[in-house]
């Protein structure tokens, strides 16, 4: 198939960017979206032009590095799918596809489609852990966890930290990301000890990073490639209230 691409080009964080139009030909429907970008970049290098900078690594939907805003949707049109797992069979010959970086104050553009998501790391380092030093643990089966709790914790822990939730939200809120980690650890007995300080610290850091507030549009859940549930946001709100009342 032949496609017209309108892609955000921005030299660096300081300069302004704009959409540039490119054509690609003979794209196979078995290609992933990023492989289609490889074809385009190979063309650009061949012409001596700078290829489009984009984040990607594992290309199997788990590292959370890829981050394209495709036709107005985080990771494009397929449900529960990262950009690297989006395949060209979801598009038609002759389509025009607009590709932009994540847009959020807390995720400044680094270059072209690459943004700085280190705010997420700082949120985790503010409290997204259990304070256990190596070597202190007791036998794993001494902490039985009801299967349902373990399954719910796992479902929350499936978050890949890609930032699609922030990109999809009109307020650029990071509530889904933060609540997924708060939930995972709050659901497990191991996480109970630091339950209050964790949620308070993480929410404080989230606000300091400049993420917006949650207005319950659920756009985050709709666009999350791992389909993390907004129930986690409700759980975090309860955790937050509980911690404040203590």
């Amino acid at each position: 198939m032949n496609l017209t691409l309108k892609i955000w080009r921005q030299k660096n964080a300081k300069e302004a960017g704009n959409l540039v139009t490119y054509q690609v030909k003979d794209i196979s429907e078995d290609m992933s979206f990023l492989e289609m970008f490889d074809v385009l970049n190979e063309q650009l290098v061949h012409k001596g032009e700078e290829p489009i900078a984009f984040d990607h690594d594992c290309r199997e939907g788990i590292c959370g590095m890829c981050s394209m805003f495709i036709n107005g949707r985080a990771h494009g049109p397929a449900q529960g799918t990262t950009t690297c797992q989006l395949h060209m069979r979801k598009f038609k010959d002759g389509d025009t596809i607009v590709v932009e970086p994540w847009r959020a104050r807390a995720f400044p553009v680094v270059k072209d489609l690459i943004v700085d998501r280190s705010a997420f790391d700082r949120v985790i380092s503010s409290g997204g852990f259990i304070s256990v030093n190596t070597g202190n643990a007791k036998d794993a089966n001494n902490i039985p966890v009801p299967k349902q709790d373990a399954d719910n914790a796992f479902a929350a822990a499936a978050c890949i930290g890609c930032g699609a939730c922030v990109a999809a939200c009109k307020n650029s809120s990071a509530m889904l990301f933060v609540s997924a980690k708060v939930s995972q650890l709050a659901l497990l007995p191991q996480g109970a000890i630091e339950r209050e300080s964790r949620v308070l610290n993480m929410v404080k850091q989230m606000d300091e990073e400049g993420f917006g507030n949650c207005t319950n549009t659920y756009a985050c859940e709709a666009e999350c490639p791992k389909e993390i549930s907004v129930e986690n946001i409700a759980r975090m709100n309860r955790e937050y209230l509980r911690a404040n009342l203590k």
Binding site: P144, V145, K147
Partner: peptide, 22 residues
């Protein structure tokens, strides 16, 4: 064996049986 203990203590959600064991 220590690795599993360490990971569980960190909150790694390993698969469990209905009795709550790994």
């Amino acid at each position: 064996a220590n690795i599993i203990d360490q990971c569980v203590a960190q909150g790694v959600p390993f698969a469990r049986e209905y009795g709550g064991y790994l």
